[in-house]
Design a protein around this nucleic acid. Structure first.
Lengths: 141, 141
DNA sequence: ATGCAAATGAGAATGATTACCATTACCGGC
DNA sequence: GCCGGTAATGGTAATCATTCTCATTTGCAT
């Protein structure tokens, strides 16, 4: 399903700002972007979108299931493209790098923990805050 | 270790506002409180503390390890007394109830996930967002 | 008791996000 | 391909949580 179809499916008009934002997430090298990030990247590429629009569009995309919103430590929301495969995140406190991982055992234990206590799960978030210790971390300890 | 000792250990003067806040968490029925919650509760009990002080004190206590800060969905921070036993949280999206749980398997799988990828873990947060379906939920579905 | 550094509190300032509203851009029907 | 209505945009003001500033007060060691 391409971007245009995505928007239609979500009942959203196919407008320039929305396509630009989707593109950013679609082909970008960085998967995890805040509203401010998106705004600045669009400005940098000469695309002129208002900050208010960026916030609106991100929220709409989240509600439409196109994006996933994260609340890492800190104040601002971060978004990533929803590609259907749930995963959790490791955030490097030194360089900000975000690594994704999936552990079937963790997933099933979570479901069980909630079910055992009589809860019907909507979703869940697991963030591990850590330091890169491999060469890849520019601020490595 | 009592409250006074706690403060001393943390290198914090034993002042009235600080003791009042500690008391709130110590004997309160609700373990999870936001800054605004704390402020309102103190006002309600006739104790007159400034909002700025509440924020300051909560942050100091967090740094001293007396409190743990959580970022549930939504914008505001929530604090709970650190009683040494790590646990994760299930948050009811209907009534706001917060239930704590601990799963050793989840913990160890998390450690492994991070270690396998070359990370040195600081801490982690696992929140399950769900609906109470037991009689206990006032807004039960 | 005394003094001084640390803590407090009121209100201003900040940063992220949302609301308002006048202007503009989609999209279906002619 | 043009028109109109409606939804979308964007600039700015407003809001919300949180932090900063700074004059005043308090805890605590002497």
């Amino acid at each position: 399903m391409d971007h245009l179809t995505h928007l239609k499916t979500a009942g959203l008009k196919s407008t320039l700002p929305r396509l630009k934002v989707l593109n950013l997430f679609g082909n970008g090298n960085e998967r995890h972007l805040s509203a401010e990030d998106v705004y600045k990247k669009l400005l940098a590429s000469g695309d002129d979108v208002g900050l208010a629009t960026v916030y609106r569009v991100l929220t709409q995309f989240e509600q439409a299931g196109l994006l996933i919103r994260h609340h890492f430590e800190g104040d601002k929301s971060v978004f990533e493209l929803n590609e259907g495969k749930h995963h959790d995140h490791i955030v490097c406190l030194q360089c900000g790098r975000i690594e994704e991982f999936y552990d079937a055992t963790i997933e099933s234990r979570q479901k069980k923990a909630a079910a055992d206590r009589g809860y019907s799960v909507h979703d869940h978030s697991l963030y591990i805050y850590a330091d890169c210790i491999k060469p890849k971390c520019p601020n490595r300890l």
